[in-house]
Design a protein around this nucleic acid. Structure first.
Lengths: 215, 215
DNA sequence: TCTTAATAGGTAGTTATACTATCCATAATA
DNA sequence: TATTATGGATAGTATAACTACCTATTAAGA
């Protein structure tokens, strides 16, 4: 039972152990078409390799970290298999990460447009991301959260810094496959990172607030 | 059947219509203790007011927008009822919004510490937010997403701008109750706003990328 | 007043998602 | 050769979030 890290061929038991997923779960993912079948060697035998392990880690990130339902996970892994481009892969992940909520709020759209044209963004108004932004502004409006809406420009500016950094961070791996994998995993894993950092920043500034109130 | 917006007393049917939730769902929330009981007028009659409608909208935001399970929603609304302070309420919402993932990765912790002490943040290492940030860095490390980790400072700086703006946007309503409501709803609704704005920024910069590659 | 609809509160049933368990024939392994 | 593992199929489970139904009232309209 050799288990060198270099060895890529393995059977179900080892795939299970190295991925941390149970054999029934892996079989389930195979049934659902999330995990590509192994290379068959007989009627009831197959071998799996590094790509299967990577796929399982990707599925794990999409489900555990991003909290996506398996239907959306399937859409993402299909796109990864489709071998489009980094930017196209990013678009697919974006769509998967956005929870659709149809809105047709022209007032909210106007508020958003003013803020993003002020920074010279050109972006498709038909994209799910745009609709999600409009929906968010509409919710803030109906809840009368004017303090946040009044600071929309500040959020747009911060978002620009994040988006620029995201694009800047697209790796320069040799193979397109690896670059796509980096984009997809990066899109999924950067979200909780930024969110946690924002919460830490809130804590930092909240200390100042509490201190100034005590004085 | 007068339905003036000023009128605050209403019965179940109107509460259902104005909240957009079905009567069985509202009854379910009453059973689960998410919605405070109405003022009883007889053995099988009760009247509800504006506060019940606001509570239902809050529950809706926490479930639909933030995607929180009802158990966490209960924790948040209990805190809102508890009438602590704005900062304490923000802490409770933070904890509810973070999905716990125990990690004890000292390497990741060191990477994070370097980045946040560089900006002079003081924040509790025992907080869920800190653990979430460590967990995010650890995931990025295991997936070898060095391009993102190399740009941690940029994300920290952007997070600082967002966190500062969040604290700055705490409303100045007269009653503590309303300010707390603003903090809780703001924490929940600002998240998808920023996320959507980041995606739009990605789209903007992706256009540049595609054009420069075409040339 | 009479009739119809609505209500509080309770129990039980439903739906969707993501697994998990069992079985069987076959193949690998000790 | 005896034991364990495997692929494939079918069926069962756990949980969350409702949803339906029932009963004894109460409200409201003709």
């Amino acid at each position: 039972m050799q288990e060198a890290a270099e060895k890529s061929g393995m059977r179900m038991a080892e795939l299970s152990r190295r991925s941390g997923l149970s054999v029934p779960t892996i079989k389930y993912y195979l049934r659902e078409g999330l995990l590509q079948p192994g290379r068959r060697t007989s009627v009831n035998q197959a071998v799996y390799d590094r790509t299967h392990l990577e796929r399982l880690r990707l599925i794990g990130a999409l489900t555990s970290v991003a909290g996506l339902p398996l239907a959306k996970v399937r859409a993402v892994v299909d796109a990864v298999d489709g071998q489009a481009s980094e930017v196209e892969a990013m678009g697919v992940v974006q769509d998967a990460l956005i929870d659709e909520a149809e809105t047709d709020d022209s007032a909210a759209s106007a508020i958003l447009d003013r803020a993003i044209t002020a920074r010279g963004w050109r972006c498709a108004k038909s994209s799910p991301a745009y609709r999600a932004a409009v929906s968010a502004v509409a919710m803030l409006t109906t809840e009368n959260l004017t303090p946040i809406l009044d600071r929309l420009d500040a959020y747009v500016e911060a978002a620009e810094d994040v988006g620029r950094t995201d694009l800047d961070a697209i790796g320069d791996a040799d193979s397109l496959e690896e670059r796509i994998r980096g984009v997809v995993l990066g899109s999924v894993l950067r979200r909780p990172l930024l969110e946690a950092l924002v919460l830490l920043a809130q804590q930092h500034f909240a200390q100042d607030l509490t201190r100034s109130e005590e004085s």
